[in-house]
Nucleic acid binder design. Structure first.
Length: 601
DNA sequence: CCGCTCCGGCGGCTAAGGCAGAAGCCTTA
């Protein structure tokens, strides 16, 4: 585990444990913010910690948190963390993960009955003794049992690419329901987060009961969790969908879908509220208060003496119909959903220019049947052309990836000739002869320089030895970037979202090398990779690196993953001009020929 | 515990739903 991840984990555990001991809520919140700040940091704290000033410059890191970071970097532990571990049984942290079970209740179970882990909880449920505890009625215990069972059969969050089709299905179905005038999804899905906890859907309708009924009986609904006036929640089965990676992804799993009925005139406020993030929303409400207003999902209202919610008293909102209106009334430009993470977006004075899918004109990482792709050379070119791309790069695996049928030098030479011939059969699209070349464990590339020099494009990617330590990983990637043939660093860390950690290099060093060499860093758009991840993109953009967004095409459907790569890019504040895939053909091709051009992002 | 603003002290988001227990707590988003 990287130092950053280790520190973030400790802050988060400190927060949980403080919560269980009933500590000051603001201190707990500060720990959570610190965990988030550290998690999203591109620089390596091991090297940053020496400079206290730069630690304090991080939003959410004050004197005490900086102390703890320095303490961990020097000693490998934090005294407060260790002290709390002595005090709080570790099994309790697991109980907090159970949906519906919060800190107050876990604490109550612990102090009243000495429950310290999941087994203990199951025991008092089984023998019924839990029912004698305060606030523990039959219904609550039933729900608790279901929550435990659910959690044990489902790993918690869904991949972006798995959740998205479900959301589109629900939205399409609800749009067709009588009386519905508007329907869309919000939440972390709209922000393009790499994993999704649940799916939020908003509707505006003149026939609320029809909509509630339609929603609760949608195909795939297993269980209705909540059926209130303004909110319904269901658990929905995931449809099976064959996929290169995801065959088992949907197996027997389900996802919670929340439907919110939005009153007329509050659409913008509701959309903002349910899009989040939570942290962004908190900032927005604080900002409203500073300006003498109060913000909720019902709108932006003038502040008055009355404690009760203003919308319930018929107070006229200052804004609420559209997001633009609400942001505007708070002195902000419209902020794209993907950057609503409380990572500096509140200081924007204009809507930032972020890349859009339609601006992508080239696919620079694609496989054919020559290695492990499903498309023939001509099929691949045909699909790329129909997508409107001006360039398609053929980049099959190199020889070390034998599991992927990597090409021997002879086969690669033959493929280069095949590509040249294929080019003759297609007009209006440039076909590049390339390779996705393995970066070996020591940072060397997988073909000799002579052969590499014959290629139009080299995507250098790590595939094996992904467990090596941070220093080795950094040296490996920096060396690969320094090879004169490398144009793109493919899926730089090799991580798989919530499956495999991948390399944990000092990303700051990687960015510097890439910037100096004019090498583009890839955002691999497959929803299981999303590598670079959002926070890395942000760091790379700020460091002035070029970025490539690639679908790593293996089958035709993979072209559709572009959407996820672009969402990730936008979460990293990527402007279109810094992404090589948006460049017109002459500029892109010149960049590919001219290995050491000066980069002006 | 942080940030703001002033160097010590203060304030720090909002609403709905469910349940248990008869007004309010807890959780979630």
């Amino acid at each position: 585990m990287s130092v950053n991840a280790a520190i973030a984990e400790r802050f988060s555990q400190i927060a949980d444990m403080l919560e269980l001991t009933g500590a000051d809520a603001f201190r707990i919140n500060a720990m959570r913010r610190a965990a988030r700040a550290v998690e999203g940091l591109a620089q390596d704290l091991a090297s940053l910690a020496a400079d206290r000033k730069s630690l304090l410059a991080i939003q959410g890191v004050g004197a005490r948190v900086a102390d703890k970071i320095q303490e961990f970097v020097q000693h490998g532990s934090m005294a407060e963390h260790l002290a709390l571990l002595e005090q709080v049984p570790p099994g309790l942290l697991r109980l907090l993960q159970i949906p519906g079970l919060g800190p107050k209740t876990v604490r109550m179970l612990w102090t009243e009955r000495g429950i310290t882990d999941l087994d203990g909880l199951k025991r008092i449920i089984a023998d019924g003794s839990i029912l004698s505890l305060p606030r523990m009625g039959a219904k609550t215990v039933e729900n608790l049992k279901a929550a435990i069972a659910f959690q044990e059969s489902n790993s918690s969050r869904l991949h972006l690419g798995v959740a998205m089709p479900v959301a589109h299905g629900v939205v399409d179905a609800m749009c067709a329901v009588r009386g519905v005038t508007r329907c869309t999804y919000a939440g972390s899905l709209r922000r393009g987060a790499e994993t999704i906890g649940d799916i939020d859907v908003l509707i505006e309708t003149g026939e609320t009961e029809t909509a509630r009924e339609a929603f609760c009986t949608l195909p795939g609904v297993e269980r209705v969790l909540v059926r209130g006036e303004n909110k319904c929640s269901v658990r929905m089965r995931l449809a099976q969908e064959g996929n290169r990676w995801g065959a088992d992804e949907a197996d027997g799993r389900s996802v919670q879908v929340d439907l919110r009925l939005v009153e007329p005139g509050a659409w913008g406020a509701a959309l903002m509220y349910f899009t989040g993030s939570k942290e962004h929303n908190v900032r927005m409400r604080e900002r409203a208060l500073k300006r003498g207003m109060t913000l909720s999902e019902h709108g932006l209202f003038p502040l008055d003496q009355d404690e009760s919610p203003p919308h319930s008293r018929g107070v006229r909102p200052v804004a609420g119909a559209t997001e633009e209106e609400v942001f505007g009334a708070l002195g902000l430009p419209w902020i794209p959903p993907e950057v609503r993470e409380d990572r500096g977006e509140m200081s924007l004075t204009r809507t930032p220019s972020l890349i859009e899918s339609g601006q992508v004109r080239a696919e620079l990482h694609a496989h054919t049947t020559a290695s492990d792709g499903l498309l023939s050379l001509d099929q691949l070119i045909g699909h790329a052309k129909s997508r409107g791309f001006h360039t398609i790069a053929v980049t099959d695996h190199s020889r070390s990836s034998f599991q992927a049928n990597g090409l021997s030098p002879e086969r690669l030479r033959q493929q280069i000739r095949d590509v040249r011939q294929a080019q003759g059969r297609f007009a209006g699209i440039r076909v590049l002869a390339g390779s996705e070349v393995d970066i070996l464990a020591d940072g060397a590339l997988d073909y000799d320089d002579e052969l590499l020099a014959e290629l139009d494009i080299v995507v250098a990617s790590p595939h094996a030895a992904l467990g090596q330590d941070s220093a080795q990983a950094t040296a490996r990637l920096v060396r690969a970037i320094g090879h004169p043939a490398t144009r793109i660093l493919g899926h730089p860390t090799g991580r798989l979202v919530s499956r495999r950690k991948g390399l944990e290099p000092d990303m700051g060093a990687v960015f510097q090398a890439a910037r100096a060499q004019g090498v583009a860093l890839e955002i691999n758009a497959h929803w299981l990779r999303l590598d670079l991840r959002d926070t890395h993109v942000r760091g790379a953009v700020e460091a002035g690196c070029l970025i490539a967004i690639d679908c790593d095409v293996h089958d035709p459907a993979d072209f559709n993953n572009l959407e996820f790569g672009v969402l990730t890019a936008r979460r990293g504040w990527l402007p279109p001009e810094q992404c090589v895939n948006t460049w017109e053909a002459p500029r892109l091709h010149a960049w590919l020929r001219d290995r050491r051009v000066e980069v002006t992002p």
